[in-house]
Design a protein around this nucleic acid. Structure first.
Length: 1153
RNA sequence: GCCUCGGUGGCGGAAUUGGUAGACGCGCUGGACUCAAAAUCCAGUAAUGGCAACAUUGUGAGAGUUCGAGUCUCUCCCGAGGCACCA
């Protein structure tokens, strides 16, 4: 059998792809040395959330796209690090597990395996020795570490807050996860719930997050998204005094220049003024009824009722405008939000649409304080903020007494017709001026005033006859004539103007002057200037008059600040980041709630009062004192005078020294006769005291009277229990049945309102040195009212492992499933060692993903979050590619975390990503792919059918990477054909031809593909490659030996980022031993990029008429000659004169005739 | 309502940033090979008119700037994404 020479092997993608994937992994081609790499390049892509359904084609699209870029960088000689991991914690995964009734742990295990298999098969250059999974303790140990750093830097805090609660997911959502009042995930209506939550103070970094956007290399739309989210607005706080109360109410405004136009105030339904001024409100029923209804509204209702403004006036409450002392009404309305600004606004209806609508609805006054400003032909006649010469101008529209015609005049010697106009002095009645002007210029005298046409507007103009720049403050009026009666006019006056009546239609045509066009438009109702929100020139504002908005703002803020009536402020829309999640599948927040520590912090004072015949440290007192000091109490245990013959008054005067130090949180412990003394002490005490624990208290009157006169007096004095009751919150009477001195019956007779009788056995009269049981009892009583404080778990105890739990379902009561796990909850306090309770919330999965890129390079270190040196070497990330849907949340959070780590000195940069690129979405049949629509493409099927290379190529080709595109089955079909064609062409080129004359194609292609790759313009790069293959095919038999190698090597290179397996196969066919990805991208020869012959387009009057093929280095003169000689040009030029010749070098010549 | 990005053949999409509109691919039409089909190969393919060379029109609509506009300016229409009573 003779083997056919140079037979073409079949393109068997299955075996090729497997072969190369295996070799890459074995040889570690994609494992850069993290410490020694010379040209590090961190090519990051957003790690996926591993759904159980497996990799989505959308993921494939994103990942292979990022990989193309990474491979290109590798070919350029960079040590590219391209890691992958799984963002597996979170509600997504948990909900899915719940749905299919399996445990989340099992589901995750399976998903991980499946995902990693798929991620291998797409042929990316991942470094598989460094993966990161957020749900593994090795990882979340450091997520918890991050929380601790936040906690220590006062950036993590707990707060009771109204939060977004999703009733279906049974957890809290961040503002970012609420889309138009609905849960991002399950679309149920989000409720407001008051819960204690953990927050990160991202707002402390608002300014920096915003500022850095100025210089980071990100697409502008991503930047604007972030800018809007941060929502900085610069403005002022202005303080309004409430009349007859002295209380000041602060409002926030971005337009302090409109202060003179503030005609009322509005407060949010939550505003404190409603409480503080409650007594003054005359219509309380109405007001508080409204407030109650407003507060009950859900987000959904607010959304539905959007823009229908409601509100109630607080009758009897008036505010005083600080700039003019004017009294203005105060309203409550839910269009004012409590969370933004100060929860109160000054309403300027003339210049704010919401206020305008509100004022119109409730008949509140509207005052114009800003006039729109029109510049005439770019001439700005403002100097030092002031306009030059000012004129009040009156424009007058006059309607005929019978016809629908309007009065116009034509000034002799001037072009065009105008309405009657004149100027007025300040303070003059403009209506009268208008009438006067009409009379003087036209003679008509019976004018009826109809209305003013809109507010003032300002316009600059050049007063020709005076030779100065002026600005006019225009006022437009509309009059009707009662009849044609006229005044006699002098001939001189008559000669000045020609008067005419013009129909509505013609008026528009005749008007030439801007202010009259404006006037006319207002008359026609085309221009609504009642509410003007733009910037302009201040009017009706005393000292602000004639100032442009920007200057007026500065002026008013200056004045307010001086008089302490306001100040410049900045407000943000950004809120703190709520990280608590009441779910199971997340990293437990590493905090213990400890009462012991809270107690220590509070330094509770305890007074020990001993009994008959002993001292302050007798019996168990000395020991108890130590015990109480241990838990942080301040203990007094005085030895009372002459305890063998005790006088009540002596004892009391001694005790009073201490009782004056006690307060409502303090505790008194007394024994035996001491209790009796305490009862008297309390009865006569001025201050209230928290608790009293009386042990074996001697309150009876039948006790032994044979101990002396003083003692007798002591026990016979009656106790005023009623008074005692008023001074004490809680009383414990601790007794022992076998006490031979004390009868328990005495205690039963005492009936205090908060009295607890505790009777034990075997303690006799409590005269021993130690009673641990009593101590515990006392400590419990102390702890009862103490709010525990949050104590961080110590770093060496991390991770706080998520305990295995069979039942991980949320209950929806505001606490997470971990709360059900007593073994988890009960723990030792890391600070005091006492009994503590673990926090049962887990943290938001966005915390996991806010720092993962720090971890990849340090996965082998278990004693530090990351290696400083490596981080310095590789970060910030060189290229970050991911979905646009994360442009607000994830990117903002990770920027925040980076800034914090920078401030804490862990890193020396404050932005995590040098370059971010947001890719588009991939759709099917014009719709998003989703399981419910049944239009999901599974990458597994495609790889099986066409191979990873064809799929990778097709995904690059179907559209611009940043725009996304539409998946079509016929498209990948075509791409598969192309790959086969290319395969064949590669083998068909034998290099046995005579040589091809023009070889510029190779260099040109390398150049353009290189440029496209750098721009991530993958679709055009693929098109270029196709052109190259078409060209190679056309010339396949003509290449000589040298040319053949060049063409084949070039092909291997340009295809390699897209179809790495095929490229590698080509490369090895060319007898290379090492991977193509270990060699360098070919350099094109600039000389070869240009063709010898170029084509010059010839246009006549902008239309293409001819093309000249000409040598590359022609001069302009030579082109000109050739062009003018061209027959086709001659035909179009004819005998017309050639006006001009425009030459674009090497491209085009345009003949203008 | 506001902000951002888009609107180009039958379809996905190109166009050096003001300089040949429709690269490249899909689809379609015709042809070759085949008994036939698939695959493959060759040719054509914006519209209109013409046998043809060629001419005219043409980048959502209208206007403008320019020798020349898909690209710049203004007005409007449509679509996508984001924000939404943020003072």
């Amino acid at each position: 059998m003779t083997k056919k020479k140079n037979s073409i092997p079949k393109y068997n993608f299955r075996s090729i792809e497997k072969k190369w994937q295996k070799q890459w992994e074995e040889k570690g081609v994609y494992r850069p040395d993290p410490d020694k790499a010379k040209r590090p390049f961190y090519n990051l892509m957003m790690f996926p959330y591993p759904s159980a359904e497996g990799l989505h084609v959308g993921n494939t699209y994103a990942f292979t796209g990022a990989d193309v870029y990474g491979r290109f960088k590798k070919l350029q000689g960079f040590d590219v690090f391209e890691p992958i991991g799984l963002d597996g914690f979170g509600i997504h995964s948990e909900n899915y597990a719940m749905k299919i009734g399996e445990h989340i742990k099992d589901v995750s295990k399976r998903s991980e395996k499946n995902f990693y298999r798929q991620l291998h098969e797409i042929g990316n250059m991942y470094d598989w020795s460094r993966t990161v999974e957020t749900y593994k303790p090795e990882y979340y140990k450091w997520t918890q570490w991050l929380f601790l750093q936040m906690f220590k830097s006062d950036l993590a805090y707990q707060k009771k807050a109204k939060v977004n609660w999703c009733p279906l997911c049974k957890t809290v959502l961040s503002d970012e996860q609420v889309i138009a009042g609905e849960c991002e995930r399950c679309d149920s209506t989000v409720e407001k719930k008051e819960l204690k939550q953990w927050f990160f103070s991202i707002t402390k970094y608002a300014d920096k997050l915003l500022k850095n956007l100025d210089w980071i290399d990100w697409p502008s739309d991503v930047k604007t998204n972030q800018k809007n989210w941060i929502g900085k607005s610069v403005g002022a706080e202005v303080y309004f005094e409430i009349k007859k109360s002295g209380e000041k109410i602060s409002v926030f405004t971005t337009r302090p220049d409109t202060l003179f136009g503030a005609t009322y105030l509005v407060v949010a339904p939550e505003h404190s003024l409603l409480k503080s001024e409650k007594s003054k409100i005359k219509n309380q029923k109405e007001v508080f009824g409204y407030v109650e209804r407003a507060l009950k509204k859900t987000e959904q209702q607010r959304k539905n009722e959007e823009k229908v403004k409601t509100g109630v006036e607080l009758k009897g409450v008036n505010a005083i405008n600080p700039v003019n002392g004017e009294e203005i009404p105060v309203w409550v309305a839910d269009y004012v939000l409590a969370e933004y600004g100060t929860g109160a606004i000054m309403a300027v209806p003339a210049h704010d649409e919401r206020d305008f609508e509100f004022a119109k609805k409730f008949g509140l006054s509207i005052r114009q304080v800003v006039a729109p400003f029109y510049k005439v032909k770019g001439k700005d006649v403002v100097k030092n903020g002031k306009l030059w010469t000012r004129r009040n101008i009156v424009n007058v529209v006059v309607k005929h007494w019978k016809d629908d015609k309007y009065l116009m005049i034509n000034r002799k010697g001037q072009e065009g017709e105008t309405f009657v106009l004149g100027s007025a002095k300040d303070g003059e009645d403009f209506v009268k001026v208008a009438q006067r002007e009409v009379r003087e210029e036209t003679g008509y005298k019976n004018l009826i005033f109809k209305k003013q046409l809109g507010g003032k507007f300002v316009q600059t103009f050049y007063a020709n006859h005076k030779g100065v720049s002026r600005f006019g403050v225009n006022n437009s009026f509309y009059f009707e004539l009662k009849n044609g009666a006229m005044e006699k006019m002098s001939e001189k006056e008559q000669a000045k103007h020609e008067v005419m009546w013009v129909s509505k239609k013609d008026v528009s045509r005749k008007l030439k002057i801007e202010n009259h066009i404006k006037t006319w438009n207002r008359f026609l109702g085309k221009e609504n200037e009642n509410c003007f929100v733009g910037e302009g020139v201040s009017v009706n504002s005393e000292y602000l008059n004639d100032l442009k908005t920007a200057d007026a703002k500065k002026e008013i803020i200056g004045r307010l600040t001086k008089k302490k009536q306001g100040k410049k402020t900045v407000d943000f829309k950004l809120r703190d980041w709520c990280i608590s999640r009441q779910r199971y599948w997340g990293p437990p927040i590493p905090v213990v709630h400890c009462k012991g520590c809270a107690l220590k912090k509070e330094k509770i004072k305890v007074l020990l009062v001993h009994g008959f015949g002993v001292g302050g440290d007798s019996n168990w007192f000395g020991w108890m004192k130590k015990e109480l000091k241990k838990i942080g109490c301040e203990v007094f245990s005085p030895s009372l005078p002459k305890s063998n013959d005790p006088s009540l008054s002596w004892w009391l005067s001694e005790l009073k020294k201490y009782s004056s130090k006690l307060d409502e949180k303090s505790l008194i412990i007394s024994h035996s006769l001491g209790s009796r003394a305490v009862a008297h002490l309390l009865a006569g005490s001025k201050n209230r005291i928290g608790k009293w624990i009386s042990v074996a208290g001697a309150f009876g009157d039948e006790e032994r009277k044979d101990r002396g006169k003083n003692f007798e007096k002591f026990v016979s004095k009656k106790i005023e229990w009623k008074k005692v009751d008023e001074k004490i919150d809680q009383v414990h009477f601790v007794l022992s049945k076998d006490d031979r001195w004390i009868d328990t019956k005495h205690h039963e007779k005492i009936k205090l309102s908060n009295q607890i009788n505790t009777v034990w056995e075997g303690y006799s009269h409590f005269a021993k040195k130690k009673y641990p049981h009593l101590r515990d009892y006392i400590v419990d009583a102390l702890f009862e009212d103490v709010e525990p404080i949050a104590v961080p778990v110590s770093e060496k105890d991390l991770p706080v492992k998520l305990p295995p739990m069979e039942d991980f379902l949320p209950e929806g009561k505001g606490k997470g499933p971990l709360a059900k796990n007593e073994k988890f909850v009960n723990t030792k306090c890391p600070v005091c060692g006492g009994q503590g309770e673990r926090e049962t919330d887990v943290s938001d999965p966005f915390v996991d993903s806010s720092w993962y890129f720090f971890r990849y390079l340090s996965t082998e270190f278990h004693d530090k979050v990351f290696d400083k040196k490596r981080t310095k070497k590789w970060l910030p990330v060189d290229s970050y590619i991911g979905g646009k849907e994360h442009t607000v949340l994830h990117l903002l959070y990770s920027r925040f975390v980076t800034m914090v780590l920078n401030d804490l000195g862990y890193i020396d940069f404050d932005e995590p990503y040098k370059r971010f690129f947001g890719h588009g979405l991939i759709t099917k049949d014009g719709a998003k792919m989703s399981k419910s629509k049944g239009n999901v493409i599974n990458p597994d099927d495609m790889i099986k059918k066409y191979g990873a290379d064809s799929m990778r190529l097709y995904l690059r080709f179907l559209g611009d990477f940043s725009q996304g595109g539409c998946w079509r089955d016929s498209g990948i079909e075509g791409m598969s054909r192309f790959v086969n064609r290319m395969w064949k062409v590669f083998y068909e080129i034998q290099g046995e031809g005579k040589g091809v004359k023009i070889m510029s194609m190779t260099d040109k292609t390398i150049k353009v593909v290189e440029e496209d790759l750098e721009k991530l313009s993958f679709n055009t790069a693929v098109a270029r490659i196709m052109e190259f293959v078409n060209w190679a095919k056309e010339n396949k038999t003509d290449f000589d030996k040298v040319q053949a190698v060049k063409v084949k090597e070039s092909l291997a290179f340009i295809i390699s980022p897209f179809a790495p397996h095929v490229a590698e196969e080509f490369w090895s066919q060319l007898s290379h031993k090492r991977s193509i990805f270990e060699s360098l991208w070919p350099k094109f020869d600039p000389k070869n990029v240009f063709d010898e012959q170029i084509e010059i387009v010839v246009q006549v009057n902008g239309k293409v008429r001819d093309r000249l093929i000409i040598s590359r280095d022609v001069t302009e003169d030579e082109v000109r000659v050739a062009v003018l000689e061209s027959e086709k040009v001659q035909k179009y030029v004819g005998d017309k004169k050639v006006k001009k010749l425009i030459y674009i070098s090497g491209r085009l010549m345009s003949v203008v005739v």
